[in-house]
Write a protein that binds this DNA or RNA. Structure first.
Length: 101
DNA sequence: CTCATGACTTTTT
DNA sequence: AAAAAAGCCATGA
């Protein structure tokens, strides 16, 4: 089942263009709170991996973080979109970072 | 309602 | 700098 909170997260994710990334904290704040932990939980339950680009969500320090289908898969997906990743960390993270309106 | 848990973040050792 | 602890919050039992 999909809760309202989860749906909100997915809607935000769908706004992120390819080649860009965001953080759990960013999403949580966009939702008006600090539920960054809950955001991760929502991603883990990701119902449609294709429609929702949950691989574009990384930790606040630029690290990749976890991924339901394996963190390696996450890294390759990002690299195939043009995001350079070195030793589990996003390069030029601050620049590639997408900001919500 | 209360309790435990986790794709997190920040502070303190 | 690196590791541990504390703080956070939605979700499911």
């Amino acid at each position: 089942m999909v809760t309202h909170f989860q749906q909100a997260c997915y809607d935000l994710l769908k706004q992120i263009p390819a080649g860009k990334v965001t953080t759990y904290a960013e999403i949580a704040h966009a939702l008006g709170g600090k539920a960054y932990r809950a955001v991760g939980t929502a991603m883990n339950k990701n119902p449609n991996p294709v429609i929702v680009p949950c691989h574009r969500v990384v930790n606040s320090d630029g690290r990749l973080g976890q991924y339901a289908f394996g963190c390696e898969r996450k890294q390759h997906l990002l690299e195939s979109e043009g995001v350079r990743v070195v030793d589990g960390k996003v390069q030029d993270f601050e620049q590639l970072r997408f900001r919500f309106n």
